[in-house]
Design a protein around this nucleic acid. Sequence first.
DNA 1: GTCTATATCCCGATAGAC
DNA 2: GTCTATCGGGATATAGAC
Lengths: 225, 225
Amino acid sequence: MSEPAARTHTLKAMAGPGKGGRYHHGHLRAALIDTAVELIGERGVRGFSLTEATRRLGVAVSAPYAHFADRDDLLAAVAVRAYELLYTELVPESGQVQPPADRLAAMARAYVRFAAANRPLFEVLHEAGLDKARHPEIEAAERPLTDAFLTCVRALSDGGDAAAQDLATAIEATAHGHAMLLLDDGSRQQIEAVELAAERTARATMALVASRHLLGRPAGRPGLA
Amino acid sequence: MSEPAARTHTLKAMAGPGKGGRYHHGHLRAALIDTAVELIGERGVRGFSLTEATRRLGVAVSAPYAHFADRDDLLAAVAVRAYELLYTELVPESGQVQPPADRLAAMARAYVRFAAANRPLFEVLHEAGLDKARHPEIEAAERPLTDAFLTCVRALSDGGDAAAQDLATAIEATAHGHAMLLLDDGSRQQIEAVELAAERTARATMALVASRHLLGRPAGRPGLA
DNA sequence: GTCTATATCCCGATAGAC
DNA sequence: GTCTATCGGGATATAGAC
């Protein structure tokens, strides 16, 4: 597997499972993000350390500080990339479909697929413990996605803004829950399991839409039960 | 720090900020679990360390090893406690209600309330990264809960075992998703927010039950779309 | 922009005394 | 069952040279 080494500065694309990638100068910032994703995929977010990233890249432990304020700052950059990729995988996919209900189901399905196919990126979003107040870029990167989703929900909801919020929350929670359970589940990332979970998510979304009249709180009750 | 030697057993340094608890001898095991829950509540699972727990209890760093093989072994004990408490809060509550659909909604509602009211315990279950193969006690503690849940689902499902699994997964995912979103959400543990999420979870469960005929995969399609 | 070197701190785990 | 002492490791972050 490992390379015979040498070749000083061909493209850095490697940095694979073996190691070897030793590319400095110029694109360290991007390389650090790549390596972070790689390491998170191997040891989880909580197991990620700047030190190990520099080891793998063959640079000095102090090198990252020329590009990131600290460890969390690097993780925040990973989170931004995650939201950007998530957007490109959710919105175009849902654009192909016409009825709003099916669009929502397609987005939910794509959400679960994204979580399975990009586990490290997905993990960063919810398990990194990032302080969003300190890293506004994250919410900025998230916004286009939630906007597209909410637009889609409103196009469907018939009971005003409160009803739209109820439906949106239910779908979000269901998709997120399916993704979490899939990732927690032993580890099996087999395509079968992923597609089963994705399909279940899509169907659950359709079910929620179909029974959306049950989601609202009874009028007259300001708070709730 | 040359020591004046002796002073054999006066009190050792204060344990912590306001944390006077200094109870050794006999129930260290239980005290460690309590302290772990406490610390996890303050710094999260990933921020928990055995060392800090011993500091807070005012015992030696080696003391825990008389009761737990290692750090994960202690966390596993916390997870067991979590499942036990979760069981007592879910099952009796659902026992009060008769129609299976309402029982399921009550369980889902209680699940979200539990997550909010016992955040440290809930976190351990999904964010501790415990190896369940190495800690069979965890699954053993979980089983009664899933059994009660599945029994409830089967009492309701009308399409055989596959349909029951589909419905069970959908409800699990929805409840878990609501809980995760609630805990991720900034931090607000206000009762209002908790009860809103809990109520939404219950209603989403009812909606899924009402449209459960949409959850199944079309017969004849072995895999899925 | 990157490296060398270092300061500082914390953690898990073990050995052996009591 | 608990304590003292310690080993070995790894992490973050900074200072200063190139």
